[in-house]
Amino acid sequence: MVIPITTGKGRSSRMHEFWEALTDPHVDFLRIALLMGLLASLAFGMTGSLVVVKRISYVAGAISHAVLGGIGAALYLQTVHGLEWMHPLLGALLAALLAAVIIAWIRNNGFQREDSVIGAVWAGGMATGLVFISKTPGFVDPMSYLFGNILILSRTDLYLVSILDLLLLGILFVQYNRLQALCFDEEQARLRGIRVGWYYTLLLCLIACTVVLLVSVVGIVLVVALLTIPAAMAGQHVRSLGAMMALSSLLTLFFVSLGIVIGFLGDWPAGPAIILVAGVAYLLQSLLKRVAA
């Protein structure tokens, strides 16, 4: 899953390699990765801010882990039953949307304890995926799904994330005020005639779409960190949800870009490098805030 980088060279040599890879017209993986970072930042910033203000990072975690169930099932159906059209991405999307609708439905109707259902979806999705993968003939490496690899993305991935960004921007443009009300004060939103259950389901479906398309950047396990850390950092410096989304997107862009560079130079997997950069920044911000207080 890691793009092999020549080892044993000095930092300046690796920097030179990085610059060559970035500017070589015949090699576009690094440019695609950075462009993906830019596009992903928008989706992460917008959806992540909603996740943070609504305090549902555990729901996003459950949805992202359920994605493995869809990927595993799709790989199995493709390989064993010859369903070529069942692309892993389609399986991931169906699983994520199913998880989102189940969690929203349980929550809206209060049939079960929401946290128990989230736990079941979280672990059940992973277990389903691993069983299907183990039963799929040939070698399937779950690591790239679990931890992602932004350096092996194609132009198709860029198009899909562009479409996701447009979809998110469109929905947020029209429904921003209602989604903000849902996240700020659900009771008040209900009193204003807003169909809270419907909007909560919409919110979880937006999270599901974002998670699916961005799993390729940092993987199933790490996606929640990139959804929440930049938004949590941004939330401490703004007075509106819109500003939080904008600042969160900028922070995500910075973390993804720096993570790609550090991963390239240090021969680290890019996904964990991105998360470590974000995590260290969050830690520093928290320490500085504490010192300032």
């Binding site: 903000q180 004060d185 204003r192 703004v238 007075r239 509106s240 949800l241 500003a243």
Partner: peptide, 14 residues
Amino acid sequence: FPIDVEGIVRMGRL
């Protein structure tokens, strides 16, 4: 929650 005073009051008109 990142919101200003006007934003909260305006929410009552939604």
